[in-house]
Amino acid sequence: MSAQTQSVGKKSGREFPKHLAIWLILGLELLPFYMMLQISLKDNPTFIANTWLPSLPRDWVWGNFLHAGKLILPFVANSIVVSVSGTVGCLFLALLGAYFFARYRMPFSQILWGLFLLLMLLPGIANIVTLFALLKTMNLLNTLWALIILAISGGQVFCIYVLRNFIEEIPRDLFEAAEMDGASHFAQLLNVVIPMSGPIIGTLAILQFLGSWNDFLMPLIILRDPELFTIGVGLIYLDGEYVKQWGQIMAAFFLASVPLIIIFLFTMKLFVRGLSSGAVKG
């Protein structure tokens, strides 16, 4: 389905109306983003006087960002720790697991595979209630560990599922050559599998990262101390303020998006690819 295979000139009709229609939808879609940016540089009275248009650069209230930064950056830091550790841990373990399933058909591996596949079917909707009780008995409430472990375990099934198919398609000679050199399985994973599956790992990483970054229900019931809050809880608390300085709030919203913006800028392709395959997850 790569673009090169499409022949040129297969489509007809004038291009301009299509572009116009696309931009119209995109414009509406990006409206919240635009509002966030332009309000983040206003104070309340300016905003009431002028809702839609950005204010002049000389009137920009940079103080909003200063204030919002103080408020939200600690949450961003916690979120980065949770999401990065969760993603790395998840992919590392999933690679090991997928390697196990893909390399040999070991005794019991069919049964174990069945156990994993079954979880693709079972919805986790009721789990939030009992997970809470479980974390309580494990003494993990009000820790970032709980969130990291949940991120790692939550991604296992899907990642192993995708990675297994991928590893199975790596030519067998590569493994055999490595084995001849006396490489252990772990060394094979490191030297054969990982270099060969860079893009799919990147894709999965982005999906896991997004999932963990956007989560707020688990953090909301797990975390108690404000110094542990991740972005999700932090924003909910921010929304609960009575006196709302919208400029500051929007600035905080923007700062909460910055890490994702950076990742997006540098890994645009993986992002696009990752989301296309995201639907397999179900």
Binding site: L96, Y99, L115, L119, L122, G124
Partner: peptide, 23 residues
């Protein structure tokens, strides 16, 4: 090679199967 699957298996058992059965 079984050590490769044990961590995932443990995590899935504890954080996916257990909560469902417990529910």
């Amino acid at each position: 090679l079984y050590f490769f699957i044990i961590p995932s298996l443990l995590l899935v058992a504890v954080f996916a199967y257990w909560p469902t059965l417990s529910a």
